[in-house]
Amino acid sequence: MTTGQTATPEHFAASASGLQKTFGEGPAAVQALRGVDIDFRAGEFTAIMGPSGSGKSTLMHCLAGLDKPSAGKVFIDGIDLTSLKDKALTELRRDNVGFVFQAFNLLPSMSAEDNIMLPLSIAGRKPEDAWFDRVIDTIGLRDRLSHRPSELSGGQQQRVAAARALMSRPAIVFADEPTGNLDSNSSTEVLGFLKASVKDMGQTIVMVTHDPKAASYADRVVFLADGHIVDQMEAPTPDGILERMKHLEV
């Protein structure tokens, strides 16, 4: 533990320091992250915003253990990801991290319920009934559990994906544009669910979005530009976010 740091990583659901990510080599190299320091407190709902290509997805992938950073450290639940081998990293993703992607979150051949249970099945664990009921009630799709993804609407599919992400009680859930493909009604469904899971179940969520309205559901908004964190905003409102973004995107 370096003395220069203000807080130890153990206090946070996830944290990153000096995070850099470079794609490619030589003159064609792209620096997607240029030194990012960020912490996510347990039970906090964080939105990440920024122009296209600013490195939001790359940051999420590095934080979630889906990609290896070129430099810097990432901690999840106090575990240093950069030192983990593939096997341990896979297990960490399985047990400590939840995901909601923009699209293709569900296995088409399985029912909604089986999809929700997938991380537990992979781990060979049994679900806790009470937790299962609570999650299912929160997403409000109890009557749709036996349906295949193709029989659900886009919003319902994303709620199922969110339920799956919560099922294993991960330390943190990453959602990369979870409402990117949805209309405003469906977006509201999904965002409402995410918010509720933070409020009622104490879940930690990090969400990337381009939509100021979606970001306003979060407790805090982090602005990213050109691989740097350029601004932060607590208790955001859609108008406040829009205002801030105008300044950033010049």
Binding site: L66, D86, K87, T90, E91, R93, R94, D95, F99, F101, F104, N105, L107, P108, L118, P119, I122, A123, R164
Partner: peptide
Amino acid sequence: TREIGLLRAIGMSRGQ
């Protein structure tokens, strides 16, 4: 590919 990637992302090991 995407399906297998998804499974890997949510924690399925290479062996599995």
